[in-house]
Amino acid sequence: MNNKPILLVEDNADDEELTIHAFEKNRISNQVIVARDGVEALDYLFGTGAWAERDPRDVPAMVLLDLKLPRVDGLEVLQRIRADERTRFLPVIILTSSNEDRDRLQGYSLGVNSYVRKPVDFDAFIEAAGQLGLYWLLLNESPPC
């Protein structure tokens, strides 16, 4: 299994806790780095701001990206990820409560790998998060570096 960290970009503390719990319940042991807004996510990915000491070439295993974020929204984060050579092929999964056709279309137009609507039901969310982790960490074959 891919041992790189998972970047969870989520501003809702309850959804953050639920996602981490879902990974633990599904025995996904990767470290989860949490960014609570788009600026924090970009700082982590590109080694700037509070993450200036981090090597930006060391990309996470995947990014779970909420859309409705403070400071810089999720679609802008996705656009910047795809625009940079270091992160262009990084698996990005939009994990959001939005069911707007426009959000899905924009996400896929900007190169998201998957768009998952957060289930409202607790057990369904645990199952969905586990399946996401297992697919992207175990089954998916990333492009060569």
Results as ranks from 00 to 15, higher is better:
Ser142Ala: 11
Asp15Gly: 08
Thr96Phe: 09
Glu85Leu: 14
Leu95Asp: 05
Glu53Asp: 13
Leu137Thr: 11
Asn12Tyr: 10
Ser109Leu: 05
Phe125Arg: 10
Glu10Asp: 09
Leu67Cys: 03
Val92Trp: 03
Tyr115Trp: 01
Phe125Trp: 07
Ser97Gly: 12
Val120Arg: 11
Phe46Asn: 01
Asp14His: 09
Asp37Met: 04
Lys4Pro: 02
Pro56Asn: 02
Ala83Met: 09
Pro56Ile: 11
Lys68Phe: 13
Phe46Leu: 08
Asp55Thr: 06
Glu24Tyr: 12
Asp11Phe: 01
Arg102Met: 13
Asp73His: 05
Asn2Tyr: 07
Ala128Pro: 01
Val77Phe: 06
Leu7Tyr: 06
Pro56Tyr: 04
Lys25Gly: 04
Val112Ala: 15
Pro144Asp: 05
Asp11Met: 02
Asp121Arg: 08
Arg80Ser: 01
Val9His: 06
Ile81Cys: 07
Glu24Asp: 15
Lys25Val: 15
Pro70Trp: 00
Val34Leu: 05
Val116Arg: 03
Val72Ile: 15
Arg86Ile: 11
Ala13Asn: 11
Ala13Cys: 08
Glu24Ser: 14
Cys145Gln: 13
Glu53Gln: 11
Gln31Asp: 12
Arg71Trp: 08
Glu100Asn: 15
Asn99Leu: 08
Pro143Glu: 07
Ile33Gly: 01
Tyr135Gly: 04
Val120Phe: 12
Val59Phe: 03
Val32Arg: 05
Pro143Lys: 13
Asp66Tyr: 04
Phe23Ile: 06
Ala128Arg: 14
Cys145Trp: 09
Ser142Ile: 08
Leu8Pro: 02
Pro143Leu: 08
Asp58Pro: 01
Asn30Thr: 03
Leu95Ser: 06
Thr87Gly: 03
Lys118Met: 08
Lys68Tyr: 13
Ala124Leu: 15
Leu139Pro: 00
Ile81Phe: 09
Ala50Gln: 12
Leu132Cys: 06
Asn30Tyr: 03
Leu65Cys: 10
Asn113Cys: 07
Val39Gln: 14
Leu132Gly: 07
Glu40Val: 00
Ala61Asp: 02
Leu8His: 06
Leu75Met: 10
Gln79Asn: 08
Ser97Ala: 14
Glu16Phe: 08
Leu105Ala: 11
Pro70Lys: 00
Arg102Gln: 14
Ala13Ser: 13
Tyr108Asp: 08
Asp14Leu: 12
Gln131His: 13
Pro70Gln: 00
Gly107Met: 03
Gly107Cys: 04
Pro143Ala: 02
Tyr135Cys: 04
Leu42Pro: 05
Val9Arg: 05
Ile93Trp: 09
Val34His: 00
Glu100Ala: 15
Asn140Cys: 13
